[in-house]
Simulated assay, not measured.
Amino acid sequence: MKKEIYITDYNCVTPLGFNVDSNWNALLEGQSGVALHKIIDNQEAFYASMIDTEKLNDEFTRFFDSAQNDIHNFTRLEKMLLLSLQPLVEKHTVSESTAFILSTTKGNISLLKNQTELPEGVYLSKLAEKIAYFFGFKTKPIIVSNACVSGVMAISVAKNMIQAGKYKDAFVIAGDELSEFVISGFNSFQAIGSGPCKPYDKNRNGINIGEAAAAAYITSMSTGNEKFRFKVLGDSAVNDANHISGPSRTGDGLYASIKNTMTEAKVSPEQIDFISAHGTATLYNDEMEAIAFNRMDLQNIPLNSMKGYYGHCLGASGLLESIISMESALHSTLLPSKNFEETGVTQPLNIIKENKTADIKYILKTASGFGGCNAAVVLEKC
């Protein structure tokens, strides 16, 4: 019999706040971090979700005010990651059997700007080692970097490694920041929206890039005295190898991921109370998701995308959105899919349009990304 795996603590750092409570309160009020920002000197401002650097530095100094933790020793991304993980490390023991798992797509890619030689800090392994060393982790860091499914897959990696007996518990941390590299990449695909993104909407025309950090504590050693517990019931990742950037038009990979996940979780479509979907607001992603959800007979389940609030936070998005979905369950509240007005996909979906009270026990979280990768997890509120 497999060990039961629980998420018992989490935290996040986003443009809407530096902890979960501030984020949840902002979301209840319908606030969004998406705004006009000018990041690239020779380009016009565009819509993105960006953390205020001055506030980030102030918060970092408040938490880590000592000589050895000089603010200049850390990049913006590293500060985000450290702030998100700090409250968890304070409450839970780091032992010889504790895993440290980092999810990111680009890491410190900004360090490459104006460099003739490759800076050591740009390597994801070095980023992971720096964060792990700061908090005194004793095991070798594990890096999950699989495009935009990384955050969801990091939960899966923790679950499976604990069940396999490799570790007793795990700290999962995820983060990505806005950078010229990322913006230029999505611009080359003509994928960035001209305004605030509108997932699944008839008038959607592209994504908003965002930045955030998120952290979760995952364990098999639940005491029953935690403030909350969510069981990770099932997980799956499937690559349909459709295209280097374009999603499968038939939704094959996402469909298979969801099917495998729900099979392991032993839940039927009608048992799912809420879907936290990927919903990037690009033409083909949203259509593909609608097809996959219908193939799984999930078209009537309340669904939202958080991209209208946070933008697309790349390697952080899957973990951040999982955390917000768990908050929804704890508060018995479904949040609307921001900026959605009129259905723009060919298959029916039950997209949430306003704050609603609901009993949420089973959550399906999905993600899809470049290269044909797809992932899903089912979480159960205990």
Rank of each mutant, 00 (worst) to 15 (best):
S276P: 05
I173A: 08
S32C: 04
S220G: 12
E321W: 13
N339Q: 08
N73S: 11
F46N: 01
G206S: 05
F340C: 01
F189T: 06
V94Y: 13
L283N: 10
G121Y: 01
A45C: 00
M306K: 13
R295Y: 02
Y133R: 14
Y133T: 13
Q43L: 15
S220Y: 09
G315F: 03
G195Y: 10
N42Q: 12
L27K: 06
A26V: 02
A375G: 11
S194L: 12
K381T: 05
A329F: 03
G17I: 01
S110M: 12
F74T: 03
S97K: 15
N304V: 00
K106Q: 13
E211R: 07
G344P: 02
T223N: 11
P302N: 08
L319K: 09
L283T: 14
G344L: 05
K338D: 10
M80G: 03
C12L: 06
R229A: 09
A191S: 15
S317H: 10
I51D: 00
Y47W: 14
G30R: 07
F63L: 13
D252S: 13
I142K: 03
Y362W: 08
K130Q: 12
L28V: 03
L81H: 05
L83K: 04
L320F: 04
K79N: 03
H72K: 12
K307Q: 10
D235Q: 09
T75A: 03
L314D: 04
H278Y: 15
I71E: 08
G308F: 03
F230P: 06
S49C: 11
A215Y: 02
G206H: 05
G253D: 12
